[in-house]
């Protein structure tokens, strides 16, 4: 890898742009594609276009042989994202765990006493109401949304927005009873069973978790399970 390719790749990562590095292994010629546009390196044979697009979509690097040579297509997608609604005690455990697992995490809570820098050092905090926050964050198929407030005033607007998105994991903390009332409210708001079934509630795998950190582990485990299950 030349220093120029390394620098261009790091710049793409910093800007959260999807990048693909295509190497021809026979001579180590390298082409960097950022946001679908070639930025450095030689033109690629058109036969590679679909492979490159598929690799980005599936977030899967791949080696392949063509009449033009042996190629390695390496995907550098922006990190997965996690939006945590509710800057509560469990969030203080979940946020660093998710960061370790490679997620870019944003915490949403209009209550400034909760979403305080001192409680979440170096974490992006959003103090808008959750529906506005979710509109701005625009969850995509590589985003998880977890609500932790137990307060329908805050959780419901976030869940409503999440259900209208492609978020790969949506979860809401709260007991089975709390979740049953939540399901009823969402029904009343016009969501059908299939849509509501996207919400994992109560959030997390049933590990018998008790402490905030243990509950965070159960949520992290379920998020991983959903992410890695074949869809």
């Amino acid at each position: 890898m030349t220093p120029a390719v390394l620098e261009a790749l790091l710049a793409a990562q910093k800007a959260h742009r999807p990048a693909v590095l295509v190497r021809r292994l026979d001579d180590n010629e390298q082409t960097l594609i950022v946001d679908g546009e070639r930025t450095t390196g030689p033109l690629l044979p058109p036969s590679l276009d679909t492979v490159v697009q598929g690799a980005v979509r599936n977030d899967k690097s791949t080696k392949l042989e063509t009449p033009d040579g042996s190629w390695f297509v390496q995907v550098f997608n922006p990190p997965l994202r996690l939006v945590v609604v509710g800057a509560v005690h469990i969030a203080q455990a979940l946020v660093p765990m998710a960061q370790l697992a490679g997620y870019a995490v944003t915490v949403v809570d209009p209550r400034r006493a909760f979403a305080a820098e001192a409680r979440f050092p170096d974490v992006p905090l959003v103090h808008d109401w959750p529906d506005e926050a979710l509109d701005a964050l625009a969850p995509d198929a590589r985003t998880a949304v977890v609500t932790l407030t137990h307060d329908p005033k805050l959780d419901d607007p976030a869940l409503t927005r999440a259900l209208h998105s492609q978020a790969f994991y949506i979860a809401a903390l709260g007991s089975k009873k709390t979740h049953a009332s939540r399901v009823q409210r969402l029904h009343d708001a016009g969501f059908d069973d299939t849509q509501i079934a996207r919400i994992h509630g109560p959030a997390g795998l049933n590990l018998g978790a008790v402490s905030p950190a243990e509950i965070a582990i159960s949520v992290m485990a379920q998020m991983t399970q959903v992410l890695r299950s074949p869809r």
């Binding site: 890898m1 030349t2 220093p3 390394l6 190497r23 292994l25 390695f72």
Partner: peptide, 9 residues
């Protein structure tokens, strides 16, 4: 596994 090793000068 196949591992490609290269210098970054």
């Amino acid at each position: 596994v196949e591992v490609y090793v290269e210098a970054i000068p």
